[in-house]
Amino acid sequence: MANQGIHSKLVTLFSLLLTLLFVYTAVSKLIELDTFQWRLERMPYIAPYASLLSWKIPFLELIIAGLLWLPRYKIMALYASFMLLGIFTLYIVLVLKFSDSIPCSCGEVISALGWTDHILLNVSFMVLALLGILWSKKKYNTQTHQNTT
């Protein structure tokens, strides 16, 4: 029971960190939308979809950040966070492994990181999202069980 209190607080902390990450990266992209699109146009595999993705990615990040704070959609938002970070990580791994041209690093503070560090950062946030899913589900299951007994 005591664990649940800690877990609940940790899930809030993880949501806070994911919100910081998503809002920061989304706003950074939106401030310099043309630059972001310019970078996407030079990325292997996704260049043809650059104009579409340059809007959709920050929009999706902001939606996920918002849903993380609505109790009803929290688990869904954590799943979405995990998947978005997972897709991005998988993309970086594929580019580094199979593409001839490695794109320039992304903008702002995170640009100080190399691609390998970027993967580590993503995996860390994916772990937070995964723990958030597990602990939120546990809490949800316990509450459902208590309500039915």
Partner: peptide
């Protein structure tokens, strides 16, 4: 908490904005 996180993230994004 979320309001604080969002404000901080937006502020940070503008503060670290750099010219390409």
């Amino acid at each position: 908490l979320p309001a604080f996180a969002i404000l901080m993230a937006v502020g940070l994004a503008f503060a670290t904005e750099n010219e390409r």
